[in-house]
Design a binder for these strands. Structure first.
Length: 422
RNA sequence: CGGGGCGUAGCGCAGAUGGUAGCGCGUCUGGUUUGGGACCAGAAGGCCGCAGGUUCGAAUCCUGUCGCCCCGACCA
């Protein structure tokens, strides 16, 4: 795509009120726009990242055998009354129709998925199974903060699993825990898995996933080596202890919670009378688990973990595009034509290979401004086509995460880039 | 909701003691430039968040209100 075709431009000035790195860079680079406190529009570059993150999550859920569905965001009051969460939990927005019927804006979907599943499940033969969605959630946070890290409207993947017995639930819970770690790692994040409290969702076991970054608002005691961690709120280990899992030392770190999984037990099955008939013809409660990943928050967490003073440094797996192609102008008409023609060919060849390219095709912008924008936007690879590089029949190759650049022959660029983005 | 900060051009800001709004960036026109945010000339762009009040006169003083950011409470 050509930079000149994108209406959402970068800005030379960072937003004045941005405190967190994600708010500052996502806005400055034109990835998101703030509509109001805690509510954002995802602009083309930002949407590209969000979709990639969500696709990674989707693939990991599919690999667990879960089937994707899409549930509504308008919920009937009765569903929330059934679990006693209409009045007693302050986290959802409520609204009503012209005819004074009450609704909740979906803050979570246990109240929707449980009655849904009840319509289909009668027998143990239908169990176990899991289903998930990737949807927009609405939560009436007392205070939205930190850019896309805590919004009142945000994106989330939520999965629900249904089981006949605890062993089966626990096994699936553990498989999901591992799938989560894989998903985060694929997104370029190091995570710790911490035991947590169930909050308003359950009294049973729960784990939260913490992306390690100094910008985190949670304090966790984490193993310096393995994935073990404990939220300081519930911690039984302390700084300097030996990790109960691998024996390495426990250290105090900051983390951003980017996921949470719960053993729901029969809490929702009880509320909605979700039963099944077992092998002996007995009616029993279905056991449930629920598993959430805030995907828009995950994007913010990646920025917090992957940036420098100049801008974002996207992991290849979630970068809005792999290659940021910069053409530098020349006063010589023939050379200029050659530069633009070379770039045009390269973009076409790369796109034909499925490599996403942002071509900064502006001719009236200085090299410095283009470089600054490239650093800000943070694509993994910057490729320059200029008079200088063409004299060597080359492009200039500079990786965002690295410091030095080198020339790569035009004849080899396509192959090298294909190798790079693998 | 308590505490703190801030609302002036698209963005970033300046506008003591009240006198009718300015700078930088960006944008538009023309020209010169082109390897780390170029330069010259010209131009457009403001319900000074909103509403009251004081005053001959309010961006400026007073009251209220709305919004944004930060801390706290709260938070799969």
């Amino acid at each position: 795509m050509k930079y000149s075709n994108c209406f959402a431009k970068t800005s030379k000035m960072a937003p004045a009120d941005a405190d967190s790195a994600n708010a500052k860079f996502l806005v400055q680079a034109g990835f998101v726009d703030q509509t109001m406190a805690g509510v954002y529009t995802w602009l083309p570059f930002g949407l590209s990242v969000l979709r990639k993150v969500e696709q990674i999550v989707r693939e990991e859920m599919n690999a667990l055998g879960a089937l994707e569905i899409f549930m509504p965001s308008l919920h009937p009051k009765e569903f929330w009354e059934a679990t006693n969460r209409w009045d007693n939990v302050g986290f959802h927005f409520k609204t009503h129709s012209q005819t004074d019927k009450d609704y909740a804006l979906g803050a979570s979907h246990e109240e929707v998925v449980t009655p849904l599943v009840k319509k289909f499940i009668e027998s143990y033969k239908s169990l176990p199974f899991a289903t998930y969605q990737i949807n927009t959630k609405f939560r009436d946070e007392l205070r939205a903060k930190s850019g896309v890290l805590r919004g009142r409207e945000f994106r989330m993947k939520d999965m629900y699993s249904f089981h006949t017995n605890q062993e089966d639930l626990s096994a699936f819970y553990q498989k999901t825990l591992e799938a989560y770690v894989r998903a985060y790692n694929r997104c370029g994040l190091n995570v710790k898995v911490a035991e947590a409290s169930g909050g308003v969702f359950t009294k049973n076991m729960s784990h939260e996933f913490q992306a390690l970054t100094d910008a985190g608002e949670d304090t966790i005691l984490a193993c310096s080596k393995c994935e073990f961690g404990q939220n300081v709120e519930v911690a039984t280990v302390k700084d300097g202890d030996a990790c109960p899992k691998c024996g390495s030392s426990i250290v105090t770190v900051k983390g951003i919670e980017i996921g949470n999984i719960f053993d729901l037990g029969t809490k929702y099955s009880d509320a909605f009378d979700l039963n099944f008939t077992d092998e002996n013809g007995e009616r029993k409660k279905v056991l449930m688990g629920c598993y959430g990943i805030g995907t828009s928050r995950l994007v913010g967490a990646i920025v917090e973990a992957c940036h420098d003073e100049k801008g974002m440094i996207w992991p290849k797996s979630v970068a809005p595009f792999q290659v940021h192609l910069v053409t530098l102008n020349s006063k010589d008409d023939a050379v200029r034509e050659n530069i633009m023609g070379t770039a045009d060919d390269l973009v076409r060849d790369l796109e034909a290979q499925g490599v996403e390219v942002l071509w900064d095709d502006r001719e009236d912008v200085s090299p410095g401004a283009k470089f600054a924008d490239a650093d800000l936007i943070g694509a993994p690879l910057r490729v320059i086509v200029s008079e200088k590089s063409l004299k060597e029949e080359s492009v200039e190759w500079k990786e965002r995460a690295g410091t030095e650049s080198r020339l790569v022959k035009l004849a080899d660029v396509l192959e090298e880039i294909k190798e790079f983005v693998k």
